[in-house]
Design a binder for these strands. Structure first.
Length: 246
DNA sequence: CAGGTTGTCTATGAACCCCT
DNA sequence: AGGGGTTCATAGACAACCTG
């Protein structure tokens, strides 16, 4: 299918049109081209998301530095309680409106369950909130069990391969086992605090047990089906590196 | 006692087949 | 076409055991 649209030489549109008319595309079936476009769209979305995350990380880092400075000032004898730095925003949206300095800020009044009061000890909770985003929480099941919430948080924060290849502490007691790196301690703490917010009765040990269980299940899954995942990848990417589904 | 491994069982959802 | 039953893969839960 040839297009009759005229475009200025050298413009992006002209580049696209010349690509559309190339022999490579002419040799492809319509279905193949549609599949390629879908793959490209998917990849574009993934890249956009990565850019958003990187931008957010940079702003969060600056916020953390400011908070650390204020905390140090406070602990150095300045009795005035440290105030929170302004919350960074991405595209006008507050990054962490739901969790501030370890304390949750209610966003929806029509919550599924009566939410417990935020902790009275924000300093004890620390600043772990940068890992648990409101978007992530929206995808998590916060209303059923602590174990489900823990699993959802882990799946939201890490890839399966990452879960399968890490442990809570990094300590390996099995001599024949490969040493596994530990999950970032601050991220584990963020999960603990988050789960304890929604399920105040749960202890660190219990939640760590849920995390351990999830890591083991993922590792077991990977051991059982290593060839399956490879086969699936081969299906997803039949034509070179066109499809990146991560 | 905490943390890790392995095996087994169960629940669940997707895929498939058959019948109307 | 679609509704219902069956099969299968997967995730999660649990128990038993090991190690430091």
């Amino acid at each position: 299918m040839r297009t009759s649209v005229r475009a200025r030489a050298g413009s992006p549109t002209a580049t696209l049109l010349s690509f559309q008319e190339s022999d490579y595309l002419q040799s492809r079936s319509k279905a193949e081209l549609i599949a390629m476009v879908l793959c490209m769209q998917s990849e574009m979305e993934s890249l956009k998301e990565q850019i958003r995350c990187l931008t957010a990380c940079g702003k969060l880092a600056r916020n953390l530095e400011a908070l650390i400075e204020r905390t140090q000032e406070w602990s150095n004898g300045n009795n005035k309680a440290p105030s929170m730095p302004p919350v960074a925003t991405v595209e006008g949206e507050a990054l962490m409106p739901a969790l501030l300095n370890g304390q949750w800020v209610k966003q929806e009044t029509s919550s599924r369950e009566p939410q417990p009061e935020p902790s009275e000890e924000p300093q004890r909770n620390g600043v772990y909130s940068e890992f648990i985003t409101p978007q992530l929480l929206e995808r998590c099941n916060t209303g059923t069990t602590a174990q489900k919430l823990t699993n959802d948080l882990l799946r939201g924060l890490y890839e399966r391969e990452c879960l399968a290849s890490h442990s809570i502490s990094g300590i390996v007691y099995n001599k024949r086992g490969q040493p596994k790196p530990a999950l970032p301690a601050d991220e584990v703490q963020a999960i603990l605090r988050t789960v304890q917010y929604f399920f105040p009765g749960k202890t660190d040990a219990e939640i760590k047990g849920y995390i351990r269980q999830k890591l083991q299940n993922e590792a077991k899954r990977l051991r059982r089906k290593p060839q399956l995942s490879m086969k699936t990848d081969a299906h997803v990417e039949p034509r070179g590196a066109a499809g990146v589904y991560t």
